[in-house]
Every structure is written in C-alpha cells, then in structure tokens.
Write a protein that binds this DNA or RNA. Structure first.
Length: 418
RNA sequence: GAGCUUGUAGCUCAGUUGGUUAGAGCGCUGGUUUGUGGCACCAGAGGCCGUGGGUUCAAAUCCCAUCAGGCUCCCCA
C-alpha cells in the first residue's frame, strides 16, 4: 500500500496501541529488576557529538565507518547515538560522577540508531536496555552485570540461550597475542579473504570473527588468546568464570568471541538465542577499562552490556510468551439520551478518583453499539443509564463476564467496587 | 555495498491458459422486538490490483522500467 503520502523512514517503526502495552511491561520488568540490583537509571540525549562516538566506539569499526546517522548544523557535528556506552561514559566524565563516591551502577533504556540494511531483528531505530558499572575492576562487577542481564531473561521466561564468554585481554596481553596471531596468519596471508587482509595490520583479532568461508580453515587452528593472557588478565578471567559457576550461571568459553567495539578489554560476552534466526544476539557486552581515559577522564575501569529489546520480543513471540496482560477497563457507562450522557460524563471522575478505570461512548451510538464497544474494550462492568434510571437514582450495574445485573445507586456501586 | 524475493480492501491472502460490474476470511458500520455485548444470521462501507510505459480487440494476469517492502550476506543488539 504505497498510498500513504508520508511514511516512516526505512527501518523505523511506530509502536502502535496494540503493541505498546508489552513495551511498557518489558520496561517495568527492567526497572523493577534494576531496583533490586540497586542500579540507577541514566538518561542521555538522543544526539551526541560525532567525535565522541568516533573516539569512543572506534574509528575503524563498522558502526562508525558506515552505520552512523550524522549531520552538521552550524559548527556542531551531530550524531544519532548508535549505542550508549560511550555517551554514558561521556556523562560520567562530564559530570564527575566519580565524586558521588564508590562505583557507579547505571542502567538505561532507549532508542539507538544505525544506518544498516534492515532485516529481521535489525532495524535502523531499535531499542536497547543495558548496564554500565563504572569504577570497579573487580570480577564481581563483571559477574553482577551478567547476572542482571540473565535475570531479565529468566524472569520473562526465556530459557533457551547460550552465554558465550571470552577474555580479549588487557593491552599488554593483546599486543602479545596480536603478534602471535600475525605470525601464525602471515604464511597464509594471500589465501585470506579480502576483508581479513584489510584487518591484518590494524585489528587482526577481528579476523577470528570472520564468516568468510576461505578464512574458516585458518581460524579453526589459530592460536587462542587465553593461552597468551598475562597473569593479571588470566586471574581476572578465572575469577569471573568461578563466580559464574558459583551463581549457577551456565556459559561456554568461546575463544573466537571478539566484539565489534574497539573499547573492550578483558571480559567479553554475548548471549545468543536459537529462536532468533540470523540476527541471533540477544545481548552483548564486556569490560572496557580504557574508555573513560580515552574520553578524557581519569583511568577508570568499567564493565557493561547492552541488550536488544526488539530481539527479546521476537524471542517471546517464538516462545508464545505474553509480556502484557490483555487490556481491560473496569467500568463502561452505557448512556441513552442527553440527560444520561451528561450524567455519565459527571460520574466518570468519581470512579477515577477511587482508582477505578472508567470510560463511556463518545459517538452517541445506539445502546447495542455501546454494549458491543464495552465488550470490545473488555469492560469488567457496564452501567446502563436511561431516563428511568435517572428518575429512580438506581442504575443497571452489569457484570459483563457473568452476565448478571442488579439495580444500584452510584454510591452503592462505588462501595461495592472499593 | 551484494544476492534472492514480494507488491491485490484496515489486516492475512485467493484470483485458473490475459476475457463481462475484482473476491474470501478477519476487522469496521448498521440491523435481526424501537433499552442489553460475546455466538449466529442479514446488509453495508472500504481497492487508480505499488507507479510509469509497452504488447493486445482486451492486462491484476505477459514484457520493460521504476519505486517501496521482506529475507539473506556483511556487521551487530
């Protein structure tokens, strides 16, 4: 139907009234669980300085090189945020949040923007929730972060997933590993895919992530970073694994897990689901001990994750999980005639003040049509008002599910419902 | 950026080898005792058959172009 003159942009979608309750339900779950973890919400602007995203996410990442929506206005370069770790860190540095004391345990919910080709589970405007714990390098922080992430899926009832874990090492370990990896790949350089050849110098670890068929043979036998971690990184990683086991959180170590953002150090993890199809990552994250400094703050360790909300909802649909209860309204006032209509209008606030949801017909329809409407709106009770009822001061109070009626005054109805 | 694929009512889709006023289900509106919903029945509204061009006596149907979706690769949430 290319009939509508104005439409949403490619890959951007309206959340319509039939869908919004499940979004609110999901958001409520996130807020409630975050409160249990004592995480605090942070909200940052939809737009950031382009330079922040380039520095934070990494100049050479796909996100920055081809997926950002950026424009210039006056002397400023604006970018629609493609992720929230860099903006949260910016906020942390800008407002000296370290001065609040301790480590900052922050969470967020909101839209992100990436100019990709849309497909199932991938949109240009999509929504994430996530956590950033800034100021602790204790493995406890890594594990609390993962535990929160898992708790959301557990509470919703998504059980079918795979938590993949790896350590990408600190800079020292990583440099050592990179040269080992280059030495290993060098003899095969000409056989590598074009993309991997490009990555060879700047970021050879990303080659491990390659899905090009010609690379697979070399990836399979490549040296593994866990054999090249320095003592500190290795100990940190062991602790993380150990704590996860103690919490009963299952994981698999995936030595090939390398994440797309440049800022990750040491712990990296990804949660995938077999219910999602080709875009199977539900959530991903890791430690980024260098980012705060990169953005201009004091050296400060941090760890976080981000989870895709649309993907979570796709998984719910696959599993027939209903996030939201069916809609309903407590009272629907069916009115006949002008006097009854104005009575209805003035009765509505009395219910609402008592915490009872109440509505009426706005179209002056027939009684039958109003009853149909009450049914469609899933009214628990209807109140039928006509001239007879107005004279007697008693109204027909109908239980829509039981199909039982009684004649009551407004006060009697209110008492009955409270 | 590349490959595949689809465009017919608000939604999901039928439309036979091109042939009279383009169909169904759901949804919507009204009605079946003028004051009672869900079920059933009846009726109605709603389509430049994505757009433009071509072939033909005749095109939703064939051809070309174009636009817009969807899926996949890549990458990620």
């Amino acid at each position: 139907m290319a009939k509508a003159k104005y439409t949403t942009h490619l890959g951007m979608f309206d959340i319509l009234p039939d869908e919004s309750p499940k979004w609110r339900a999901l958001e409520n779950i996130i807020h409630e669980e975050a409160a249990k973890f004592n995480f605090e919400e942070i909200r940052t602007p939809i737009m950031e300085q382009t330079e922040l995203i380039k520095r934070g996410v990494g100049q050479l990442t796909d996100i920055v090189t081809k997926e950002i929506f950026a424009f210039k206005k006056g002397d400023s370069n604006y970018v629609l945020r493609p992720e929230l770790t860099a903006p949260v860190v910016r906020s942390f540095v800008e407002h000296h949040l370290d001065q609040r004391g301790g480590s900052q345990k922050l969470y967020y919910i909101g839209p992100m923007f990436r100019a990709e080709r849309p497909q199932k589970g991938r949109q240009r405007q999509f929504h994430q929730f996530g956590v950033e714990i800034i100021g602790s390098d204790d493995p406890v922080a890594d594990v609390e972060c993962i535990a929160f992430m898992m708790q959301i899926y557990k509470r919703i009832g998504i059980k079918n997933f795979n938590l993949k874990l790896n350590s990408v090492g600190d800079p020292e370990s990583r440099d050592a590993y990179k040269s080992v990896l280059r030495d290993y790949l060098k003899p095969h350089f000409d056989s590598l895919s074009e993309l991997s050849q490009k990555r060879f110098d700047k970021n050879p670890m990303r080659i491990l992530d390659s899905k090009e068929p010609e690379d697979q043979e070399f990836i399979k036998n490549a040296p593994v970073i866990s054999d090249h971690l320095n003592e500190e990184s290795a100990r940190h990683f062991e602790k993380v694994c150990d704590y996860l086991r103690k919490l009963g959180i299952e994981y698999t170590i995936d030595p090939l897990l390398v994440r797309g953002m440049d800022y990750y150090t040491r712990t990296a993890f990804e949660l995938t689901s077999p219910d999602l199809g080709s875009q199977d990552a539900l959530a991903g994250g890791g430690r980024y001990d260098l980012l705060v400094q990169e953005i201009g703050g004091k050296p400060t360790p941090a760890v976080g994750f981000a989870a895709g909300m649309e993907r979570l909802m796709i998984a719910c649909e696959e599993l027939n999980i209903e996030l939201a209860l069916p809609k309903k309204v407590d009272i629907y006032i069916v009115s006949l005639g002008d006097n009854a209509r104005s009575w209805a209008l003035t009765a509505l606030p009395k219910f609402r003040e008592a915490g009872i949801s109440a509505t009426m017909d706005y179209l002056g329809r027939s009684m039958r049509a109003q009853m149909k409407d009450a049914n469609r709106e899933n009214a628990v009770y209807s109140i039928i008002v006509g001239d007879n009822e107005l004279e007697e001061g008693k109204f027909t109070f109908r239980n829509m599910h039981e199909s039982e009626e009684e004649s009551l005054s407004l006060d009697e109805i209110l008492t009955k419902l409270s």
